[in-house]
Design a protein around this nucleic acid. Structure first.
Lengths: 166, 166
DNA sequence: TTAGCAGGTTACAAAAAGAAACCAATAATT
DNA sequence: AATTATTGGTTTCTTTTTGTAACCTGCTAA
């Protein structure tokens, strides 16, 4: 996304997509969680062009997802480490991984498994309510306009939905 | 993504990105969760070009995310309803929304709030272990090659990571 | 001395996205 | 009866974004 304008300014999903909503950023982020840190590591593992990789690492660094830290002087060399904002995308990646495993691989032939070192088991990520701990489903989560929303945002969405029930 | 080849075949994250890894699909999906169902609704709310919208709805339908259901004969009209695979992306969208709200809006000025009808509270989505219920953090979740992974996948990742510790 | 590596940049070609006009089937309006 | 509106697109053309391949810089190793 990098240089686009948001189609729905203010929306948190759109906001994140402005940062990672292109073909590569989330794969770069995934590799970073695997432990990849250097330009060459990303480049070889992903098969991404150097030009695009350089662009993405720069924009992700500007967005605060990565810290670019020097690990060697003469010649200067940098590596890309997940910053707080980057680390906090973990639930997004884990949710994506869960979906892909569930719908794209046959049971017993998963490509990736996750072991929780807390309980030692192979697990699935599960999304629950921060307040009561119940599992969250679309039917039981109601989106509401927050204090920062503008009335035009709500009206334009309402118009788009109204088309459905007419 | 639609017509690309996966850079890391087998990876569940890459698999999902093949389906929704472009600038618009996740926004279309978000609107679908809001209740938008028709071509015009998506088009007006998102400000997406009709060409791209038609392409995306077609590819998302082919991928099993949407069902294209006729709601009127003469003239034939279709609407796009979330299929099981589409509904199951809810955790991804919710995780994205949580990230965006946390990092892109000021406290007290959130654009979006989520009310859980189970407990009635304004909540945050939280990712927990399906086995023990503990909150999942990057440090405590270890990715392992599953039974469907090929050794070359693992080796190429190992090489990319090794660059880090050399 | 030559080769190699890490981390890029540059120039150019190919692919994707966007804008705007158009179309088809029908219904509503004048 | 003719005109206009609505929904759900397609077509054509232009602009942007990606990708490819060659090149560069500063150093190290053989």
């Amino acid at each position: 996304m990098s240089s686009q304008t948001a189609s729905t300014p203010g929306c948190p999903i759109d906001g994140l997509l402005q940062i990672v909503g292109d073909r590569w950023s989330l794969l770069i982020l995934r590799d970073a969680f695997y432990g990849v840190r250097r330009f060459d590591g990303f480049q070889q593992h992903l098969g991404i062009s150097k030009k695009i990789l350089a662009q993405r690492l720069r924009s992700l660094t500007e967005a605060g997802i990565f810290n670019r830290v020097m690990y060697q002087e003469r010649p200067q060399r940098f590596e890309y480490r997940l910053a707080a904002r980057g680390l906090d995308t973990f639930p997004v990646l884990l949710s994506m991984s869960r979906w892909g495993t569930r719908w794209l691989s046959e049971p017993g032939k998963e490509w990736l498994q996750l072991r929780h070192t807390g309980c030692g088991e192979i697990i699935e990520a599960q999304l629950v309510c921060s307040h009561c701990g119940e599992r969250l489903t679309p039917a039981r989560v109601k989106p509401l306009a927050g204090p920062g929303a503008e009335s035009k945002d709500i009206e334009s969405l309402a118009r788009a939905i109204r088309k459905t029930s007419s």
